[in-house]
């Protein structure tokens, strides 16, 4: 079978322009639907682009291809980011993005694997993706399948106890075909993560749980690609990338604002935002 892996992009500039397109798609979708999560979709955009377009092998024409790498958006509210990437990758036509959050749309408010091929598992209730990622990784290992699993979590999300259960499991079972990412934008709905329920020291916590930890600037595409390369080489333990990010990244008037966690841009804001992204 000939496999389309979307031709991994190695050029950093090209990855950056993909990320710009993804940001615009996210904003377009959210403006169209009038609701959805802007801040956290934009913060994780660069890392997600790095994962999908520089690293992952997949085939949009055959979403259940057995040797595909798997991606889980554990912070399910960043669904617009995932949909934008899937449209860019060719899983469905660009027009489908206009269906975000509409009745009977494949693009549910939070990802639904039964409605949209290419979504590996439904998410939205936080804290659950890493456990599923572990299970997938263990299943692949039993079959000697070389595919790898990627899982993006929010930093607020790691307040969920289940994340730490899963963190123990991954280390205990030496799951090294898994690369997790914490989108460390330091904000959650009610305010600063450190004010709501502090998670620091994040690096030390994951290290103490037995993980290989890589700290990066989550908007520096070179660092993202380098970290993903490093993660692939680590054997005998799981890897987590702590990506320091900015909520709402790319649009000055959304950046670092907790109030844009779950608010969609107005049409005016959209026009302004697109100009900013294109002029950057």
């Amino acid at each position: 079978m000939s496999v389309i892996t979307n031709g991994k992009i190695t050029d950093i500039q090209e990855l950056k322009s993909v990320a710009k397109r993804i940001r615009i798609k996210i904003l377009h979708m959210l403006t169209q639907s009038g609701s959805g999560h802007t801040g956290g979709s934009l913060s994780a955009a660069d890392v997600a682009v790095g994962i999908y377009f520089s690293k992952m092998k997949f085939n949009p024409q055959n979403p259940t291809w057995e040797e595909r790498d798997r991606f889980i958006m554990s912070k399910g509210h960043a669904a617009p980011l995932l949909y934008a990437i899937m449209a860019e990758a060719g899983y469905f036509p660009e027009e489908t993005l206009d269906q975000l959050r509409k009745v009977e749309s494949p693009l549910q408010g939070h990802p639904c694997c039964r409605k949209l091929p290419g979504i590996e598992v439904s998410t939205g209730s936080l804290g659950q993706g890493l456990s599923v990622a572990n299970g997938m990784a263990l299943g692949l290992r039993l079959d000697n399948n070389p595919a790898r699993i990627f899982c993006i979590m929010g930093d607020g999300e790691i307040q969920e106890g289940q994340i730490w259960e899963a963190a123990m499991t991954a280390a205990h079972y030496k799951i090294d075909n898994l690369c997790a990412v914490v989108d460390n934008n330091e904000l959650q709905i009610d305010g600063a993560v450190e004010d709501v329920m502090g998670i620091e020291p994040v690096h030390d916590k994951w290290a103490a749980f037995g993980w290989h930890v890589i700290d990066i600037d989550g908007h520096d595409m070179e660092e993202i690609v380098r970290a993903l390369d490093e993660a692939e080489k680590v054997k005998g333990k799981p890897t987590v990338i702590i990506a320091k990010t900015t909520k709402g990244k790319g649009v000055s008037f959304f950046e670092d604002k907790a109030e844009y966690h779950g608010v969609a841009p107005s049409h005016e804001e959209f026009d302004k935002a697109v100009k900013e992204i294109n002029n950057e």
């Binding site: 456990s131 299970g135 997938m136 990784a137 039993l142 289940q162 259960e165 899963a166 123990m168 499991t169």
Partner: peptide, 16 residues
């Protein structure tokens, strides 16, 4: 860790 057990089981199922 029952929550993790159920999540991991789902992942295993998704791997066939």
């Amino acid at each position: 860790a029952e929550q993790d057990m159920v999540g991991t089981a789902a992942g295993l199922a998704l791997s066939g």
